[in-house]
């Protein structure tokens, strides 16, 4: 649900990073925040517990640039990944324009990835969205760790829509901007298609 403001000539869109607990959603936003020019970004807000687990959401506003005199702004959100924050997770999806699914590549997290993707589908449909139709990108994170599932297997397990997918190491930034670009582009193309 974008916000098109003819008065201030702005287009605002919302992107949500989804995925199981500790998969690196917040780390994605932190890297984007560190590597963006000050004039392009607002504050990174993190509503986290004392142990730095996301409690409600992280929020980062980004200004990408202009198209035909309209400022293009993206609001990036993460959801709390831990299973028992289900009620909060649902709320963040309100008004979403595009979704990034961050998967944890470690073998022992395979079940959690599948569960989280199912959870995403259900929560979206409760808000009246269909994951099969939303702008969507997939990120396979933690590719630097030793005990990981091959990308081809992750593709089979998770990427049933064959959306753009990226190998990432969010702590070093590998794949982070590529993923963001892929979903942001789809959101803008979708807007263009819609009108």
């Amino acid at each position: 649900m974008s916000f098109i403001n003819y008065s201030s000539r702005e287009i605002n869109c919302k992107i949500v990073y989804y995925g199981p607990g500790l998969c690196g959603k917040t780390t994605n936003l932190q890297f984007i925040y560190r590597r963006t020019n000050p004039e392009q970004k607002g504050k990174l807000i993190s509503l986290a517990t004392e142990t730095e687990r996301t409690l409600f959401f992280d929020f980062l506003p980004l200004a990408l640039g202009d198209i035909k005199g309209f400022k293009i702004r993206f609001h990036l959100y993460t959801v709390p990944g831990q299973v028992f924050y289900a009620a909060s997770r649902k709320l963040i999806l309100k008004g979403v324009d595009g979704v990034v699914f961050v998967a944890d590549s470690q073998i022992e997290r395979t079940e959690s990835n599948i569960e989280s993707l199912e959870d995403l589908k259900i929560n979206l449909s409760e808000q009246g969205y269909d994951l099969d139709k939303l702008p969507f990108a997939m990120q396979y994170n933690k590719r630097d760790l030793p005990n990981i599932v091959p990308v081809a297997d992750l593709e089979k397990l998770l990427n049933y829509r064959k959306v753009p997918s990226f190998e990432a190491v969010a702590v070093t930034g590998k794949g982070v901007f590529e993923t963001l670009k892929a979903v942001a582009k789809q959101v803008l193309f979708e807007l263009k298609k819609h009108y």
């Binding site: 003819y6 008065s7 324009d97 807007l191």
Partner: peptide, 13 residues
């Protein structure tokens, strides 16, 4: 796209 986008015009703004 699902839902309705919020649109703001100069006059109403």
């Amino acid at each position: 796209m699902m839902g309705s986008d919020l649109i703001m015009y100069e006059e109403e703004f």
